[in-house]
Design a protein around this nucleic acid. Structure first.
Lengths: 204, 204
DNA sequence: ACCTGAACACCGTTCAAGT
DNA sequence: ACCTGAACACCGTTCAAGT
């Protein structure tokens, strides 16, 4: 076969296949990815910088689904609220990718643009420049942790037989099934952080 | 050599060596771990259930450093505040382990005991049982995200040359070097969540 | 019970060969 | 430029052999 007249692969096809694989299996290997693409493993290396490159493609895929235009909303708290929800929804749709992304960090220009939009809406909203980074970092840490929580199996929240945990058992039994523990926690935490930001914004 | 008169290995030695390895290299492999222990790789399998077992040992090691007795403090918000700080400090001391633990989840009895203490202090503090899980989940998500943030390289927060990001640049320039962005974000987020819990506790 | 040497399946990556 | 086959180093794990 050697070189085909029309390329069999491109970054988009690779990214899509990788995302499907991770969604289904919870992980991916280069051979499995190649198999799904109907190609030999080394072929992938002509389009992406190895396995790490594939992970970057996954990150970009998820980023695409976050609606950063929401950061153009005003006032600032409406923008952050909407953006946070979009962020969470994007990750929630692909929970298994999260651990993959958590390990490495990026320097993608796209990310910088988004952070600039966030800094813009906050500064414009009356925050002092030195308040921007810690404020947003706190929010993002919460979002990231919430995303990881969604990737974790709910099974974790069962008291194993034979273990005495009366208070926890009571708390678990009192849970509502809908909205989920995860959803309720998200709503609560997001509101808490936005409230604190509003308070900070009100007083110098 | 075969079987030595005194065992060369035990779970404690393995755990300690693995933690050192991860702290130094940011990761660990079974051969590298064996090398550090002065032993052949398969020997480890006599004491731990494979690589996953070593990761569980790491989790236990970190858990040990969290002072769960702080959850016996009263009132509830003092307990949670102190526990949250201890939690963060334990992870902050070994940032590279965090991604390792984030992937898998546990069912360790020890964890259940801690969660029961948390449920106890909250219910005793006046929270309704159905408020416990979402409240604590929100806090823990924030703590986990904050821990991951600490594991991430600070380099991420530089604007690459040639990229236009005036607002972000301003926010970055305005940062104080001490306390760290990470520390400030932690203080802010923790206060925000505890405030929201107090508000929830005050009104039914 | 506990360590070793040998062996296996599998993975990520490189590279020369082919069009 | 782009795909393949062959090859390599390395990893996690198993297991029979030895005390």
């Amino acid at each position: 076969m050697a070189r085909p007249r029309k390329p069999l692969l491109d970054q988009d096809r690779i990214a899509t296949a990788a995302l499907e694989l991770v969604d289904e299996d919870g992980e991916f290997t280069m051979p499995a990815l190649a198999r799904r693409l109907g190609v030999q493993t080394p072929s992938i290396y002509h389009h992406v910088d190895g396995r790490a490159g594939v992970i970057e493609l996954l990150r970009a895929k998820i980023d695409e689904e976050i609606d950063s235009a929401l950061l153009d909303l005003r006032p600032w708290d409406r923008a952050l609220d909407a953006y946070a929800r979009s962020y969470r929804a994007a990750f929630a749709a692909h929970p298994h990718v999260i651990p993959l992304l958590a390990t490495s960090t990026v320097q993608a220009p796209r990310v910088v643009v988004v952070y600039d939009m966030i800094a813009a809406v906050l500064i414009e909203g009356g925050f002092a420049p030195e308040q921007v980074m810690p404020s947003y970092t706190a929010l993002e840490n919460f979002l990231l942790g919430s995303a990881l929580d969604r990737a974790a199996p709910e099974v974790m929240w069962e008291v194993p037989p034979g273990v005495e945990a009366p208070h926890l058992s009571r708390a678990l039994a009192a849970q509502t099934t809908s909205p989920t523990r995860s959803d309720q926690a998200f709503e609560f935490g997001l509101a808490a952080l936005l409230d604190a930001l509003r308070a900070m914004n009100a007083s110098p």
